[in-house]
Amino acid sequence: MTTSPLLSATGLEVVFPGRHGAAPTRAVDGVELGIRPGEIVALVGESGCGKTTLARALLGLVPPTSGSVGFAGRPLDYSSRALKAYRRRVQLVLQDPSGSLNPRHTVYDAVAEGLRIHRYGGDERAAVSQALSRAGLRPVERFFPRFPHELSGGQRQRVVIAGALVLEPELIVADEPVASLDASVRGEILALLLRLRDELELSALVVTHDLGLAWNIADRVAVMYLGRIVETGDVEQVLTAPRHPYTRALLSVLPESRDDPVVLAGEPPDPSRIPSGCRFHPRCRLLVQGEAERAGVAEACRTQDPEVLSDSGGAQVACHWARVTV
């Protein structure tokens, strides 16, 4: 891809100090990632792999320990005034709409809140009406006086999306946007996000553990494990021909998969004790079954950390075995 990223991470690391003398936690450990105008990127991985911390760092909610976040070609300024202006252009959509909405606020007030925080000088009612209409809540006047408890889960999520859209952002970060919704509603919300991308040229980072969701909505996918992106590329290329054993394991448990489910041993390692070599090697079936040994990379898997993937836009994998068996 030749288009410059709208939002980018360069050498991004987020390290939290350990408590009571414990080792520091490397929640994000060297990430290169770009999201281009009009592009939807899915960030996938198990719980605890660092997805949400990376998303919060991209939003400016967590300052990086090292590396940088850039937006529209400029490094992110962490002054209060600059961050306020930045968050008008980059909005967050959270997983749980019930937790995102104040139960004492009407739908109108919930959507108008961002306008009031940013001291919007235009027609507030018209802006709220437009945002609700774009989010698929019509007729908008019927929703103005309602409270969150009077809405369905899907309607509450649409209100949250409207609250993000009302400021006309260029990019949204959606953290598990349909995880709390019934299966019958998920498709509607995903279709809404795709329509908004097409109509508004909106970019999005969708954080999810669900590769099926990534398949349905994303242009590109970045697979994260223990603080680092281990495979990335066009969604169809990565999800139809995965090269990293971790990506293969995640795909194997989807209902539509034709492969036998791969059960990974144990939980993801403690990010304060990242294994030597490839960080996935203690759970890698290729190493256990001898395939890495036959390929001549078993020692490298145990001792050599694969290089951090660049943000070239093409398919890449951080795996010693995959790189010698192409």
Score class of each variant (00 low, 15 high):
Ala9Pro: 00
Gly11Met: 12
Leu12Gly: 00
Ala23Asp: 10
Thr25Pro: 10
Glu39Arg: 04
Ser47Val: 02
Leu58Gln: 03
Ser66Cys: 10
Ser66Gln: 10
Gly67Glu: 08
Val69Asn: 04
Arg74Asn: 14
Leu76Cys: 04
Asp77Gln: 13
Ala85Lys: 11
Ala85Trp: 09
Gln91Val: 00
Pro97Trp: 12
Ser100Gly: 06
Leu101Lys: 02
Asp109Glu: 13
Ala110Ile: 06
Glu113Cys: 06
Glu113Pro: 07
Arg116Lys: 07
Gly121Leu: 11
Asp123Glu: 13
Ala126Glu: 08
Ser129Gly: 15
Gln130His: 15
Arg142Ala: 11
Phe144Gln: 01
Arg146Met: 08
Pro148Arg: 10
His149Phe: 09
Leu151Thr: 05
Ser152Ile: 02
Gln155Pro: 04
Ile161Lys: 09
Leu171His: 11
Asp175Glu: 03
Leu181Gln: 06
Leu190Arg: 01
Leu194Pro: 05
Leu200Cys: 11
Leu202Thr: 06
Ser203Glu: 08
Leu211Tyr: 10
Ile217Ser: 03
Val221Phe: 05
Val223Asn: 00
Met224Ala: 08
Met224Tyr: 08
Val235Pro: 04
Val235Lys: 03
Val235Ser: 03
Glu236Tyr: 15
Ala241Arg: 14
Ala241Lys: 12
Ala241Val: 14
Ala249Asp: 09
Pro255Asn: 04
Glu256His: 13
Asp260Ala: 15
Pro261Phe: 09
Val262Glu: 08
Ala265Ser: 14
Pro269Val: 04
Cys278Ile: 00
Cys284His: 07
Gln289Gly: 13
Ala292Arg: 09
Ala295Val: 04
Ala298Pro: 09
Asp305Glu: 14
Ala318His: 10
Ala318Asn: 05
Cys319Ile: 03
His320Cys: 01
His320Tyr: 03
Trp321Asp: 03
